[in-house]
Computed example of a mutant assay.
Amino acid sequence: MFNESWPWKRDLAAAADRLEEARLGLAHRLEFGDGDDAYEQETEAVYQVERDVMSGAFAARRLIGMPSKVTKRARATKAVVTRFPLRGDVSAPDTWDALDDLEMYDMDARRDVSISANEMCNLFVHSLIFRLAWTLEGLSWANYWALPADDPRCEAMPTEVSGLLVATDKSSSQHLTLVSVVELVRVFRILANDEVSQVISRRDHQGRVHVTAE
């Protein structure tokens, strides 16, 4: 258990702010990397996004797991994500496949689903696949991916981090999940800004204490 939750909530809110800025700002940072250390600059910029996603997911999951730190309403938060099923004629990806082009998933059979915030965070904490999903500003990632090869927009450098493509070693055998940056930021902020006004505890018939925050 966290000793105090407010520093974690503070940093979770800061991570959400940085991720919101990176949605359109990361491409700008990568564009102006130059000189002998350009590769290091680009690596650092992408790492900072990865760090905020992973550390934020850990903090959010931990807060959800502590009934006295966030309210029941916040703990029940849902996230809308997009799933792409594993093709029926291929095996689930291994560690090396996860670094490749992910063609084992059917991107044309996408399905939007609502999952718990805890399940969303688990995808990142236990991720086998973790990939930035780039697009052109204002164009959904699914539509960007589906552009025909002769579309001139395919030649343009992507300008927006639409979301994260993620799967765990278990979920990868069923589907790949796209979590939009907008949705991830929304969930992080709900938990970061949640304020507990009272903590109610009760004992069940076996003498175990159950805590609920409101």
Rank of each mutant, 00 (worst) to 15 (best):
N3G: 14
D11Y: 14
D11Q: 12
D11E: 13
R18F: 12
A22K: 03
H28Q: 14
E31T: 10
D36L: 10
Y39P: 06
Q41F: 07
E42V: 05
E44T: 08
A45S: 05
A45I: 01
V46M: 15
V46D: 08
Q48W: 10
D52S: 03
V53I: 13
V53H: 05
M54Q: 12
M54T: 10
A59V: 15
A59C: 15
R61C: 10
R61E: 14
R61P: 04
L63E: 03
L63G: 02
L63H: 02
L63W: 02
K69W: 10
R73W: 13
K78M: 12
A79M: 15
A79G: 05
A79H: 06
V80Q: 09
V81W: 02
V81K: 03
T82M: 12
T82K: 11
P85S: 09
L86N: 03
R87E: 08
V90G: 10
P93K: 04
D97W: 06
D97Y: 05
A98C: 12
L99D: 06
D100A: 15
Y105P: 05
D106E: 15
M107E: 07
M107S: 04
A109P: 11
R110H: 13
I115C: 06
S116T: 09
A117T: 06
A117H: 03
N118W: 13
N118S: 15
E119A: 14
M120D: 04
M120S: 03
C121F: 11
L123F: 12
L123R: 06
H126E: 15
S127Y: 05
I129E: 01
F130Y: 12
R131C: 08
R131V: 06
L132M: 11
A133C: 07
W134S: 08
W134Y: 11
T135A: 02
T135N: 01
G138R: 00
L139I: 05
W145Y: 05
W145G: 00
A146F: 00
L147T: 00
A149L: 00
D150H: 01
D151W: 00
R153S: 00
M157F: 08
P158L: 04
P158S: 12
T159Y: 01
E160T: 09
V161D: 03
S162D: 09
G163P: 02
L164A: 04
A167I: 07
D169E: 15
S172H: 09
S173C: 09
V179K: 03
S180Q: 08
V181M: 09
V182R: 13
L184M: 10
R186E: 09
R189H: 05
L191K: 03
E195L: 08
E195F: 04
I200Q: 11
S201Q: 11
R202V: 12
R203W: 13
R203I: 14
D204M: 01
Q206F: 08
Q206E: 13
G207L: 03
R208H: 12
R208F: 07
V211Y: 02
T212Q: 09
